[in-house]
């Protein structure tokens, strides 16, 4: 890790003022310090956000809940209101890392984290995503990589929370200079679809302040499959959410994680119409196969994604 200046922000305005070209925000630090230790990024200044008041709050007082960017993953996983009302969010949080990571990692940091591609993270390599010429994964060892991508880089988004928050129609509020900007979760990642250098749509100096989650979707779930039984990245993750009124379903959405540089929306007229019979679920899951463009070593993710779509929808229905 190269040396840097360290500054502690006391307010969102203060953080923005401290932000200079080449500076980085520090919250939980798991992602940032990991990149710094491999010399992937070497910020001149690190701005510690953890003492900014208000960013650590979970506000459930209106129908749209507001979670501060500094709320830790552990707090999300343990929050009784979240477990009761947005179970998928609690499930996604409880699958993040390990207790030690969940205790420090934050909502904002989880959404803004960078690629875990092993070429990108390798200290001795300079891949496409790091500004080099080649995406080594495309022709190389790509068992953990994307089934869908709009650019030559095939590293997938790995944030668990992005997948469930996309399904819950959450909006991410950030400060961009003096302006407050609100992005949907798909918008937060859309730049990564087409731009190999992008991990998300954040611009330098952008600061995620909080996330707003509408709560009308009364059913949600998050599932992932990893090689290990615990503390492992998802090979594929899947979140499903919807509003059930009587026997009818509204606003159903299904997203996949770890298969594309963005949370990947599973599209189907059946989902749009809220048809979730077991036959319909089977057909939704089936349709994914024709859309995916697997690489040499990640074709196995297709059946996993299909199984997770089936299981997630079956779970919210039952």
């Amino acid at each position: 890790m190269k040396n840097f200046e360290y500054a502690r922000a006391r307010s969102v305005d203060g953080a923005i003022q401290l932000s200079t070209p080449g500076s980085r925000y520090l919250a939980g630090g798991i992602d940032l310090l990991g990149e710094m230790k491999e010399y992937i990024v070497s910020p001149k200044r690190v701005i510690d956000l953890k003492l900014i008041p208000d960013l650590g709050r979970i506000d459930t007082s209106s129908s749209t809940w507001k979670l501060g960017a500094n709320v830790t993953i552990a707090e999300i996983a343990k929050s009784e209101p979240i477990r009761a009302t947005l179970p998928g969010l609690a499930e996604a949080a409880s699958e993040v890392g390990s207790p030690q990571i969940r205790n420090v990692a934050t909502l904002g940091g989880n959404l803004a984290q960078h690629s875990r591609c092993w070429y990108y993270r390798h200290r001795d390599l300079h891949c496409l995503k790091r500004g080099g010429a080649t995406c080594y994964a495309r022709e190389g060892e790509n068992k953990y990589h994307s089934l869908f991508s709009g650019n030559p880089c095939v590293s997938p988004v790995v944030s668990n929370l992005a997948v469930i928050l996309a399904a819950l129609d959450a909006k991410v509020s950030l400060r961009r200079g003096d302006k407050e900007v609100q992005l949907t979760v798909p918008e937060l990642y859309s730049d990564a679809w087409g731009n190999p250098l992008a991990h998300n749509s954040l611009q330098p100096g952008d600061l995620i302040v909080h996330v707003e989650i509408p709560t009308p979707k009364n059913r949600s779930t998050y599932l992932q499959v990893s090689e290990k039984s615990d503390f492992d990245w998802a090979l594929v993750s899947c979140a499903a959410a919807g509003r059930k009124t009587g026997d009818r379903w509204f606003e159903v959405s299904v997203f996949l994680g770890a298969v594309a540089p963005i949370p990947y929306r599973v599209e189907s007229p059946l989902i749009e119409r809220g048809e979730l019979s077991s036959a319909a679920i089977g057909s939704i899951s089936q349709s994914l196969a024709s859309q995916a463009t697997p690489l040499a070593h990640n074709g196995y993710k297709v059946p996993i994604a299909q199984a997770l779509i089936r299981r997630a929808l079956t779970r919210i229905v039952s």
């Binding site: 360290y6 630090g29 990991g34």
Partner: peptide, 13 residues
Amino acid sequence: GQPVYSCMKLAME
């Protein structure tokens, strides 16, 4: 009181 990885905490923090 909470377990954390001390390898991923700056002393400054």
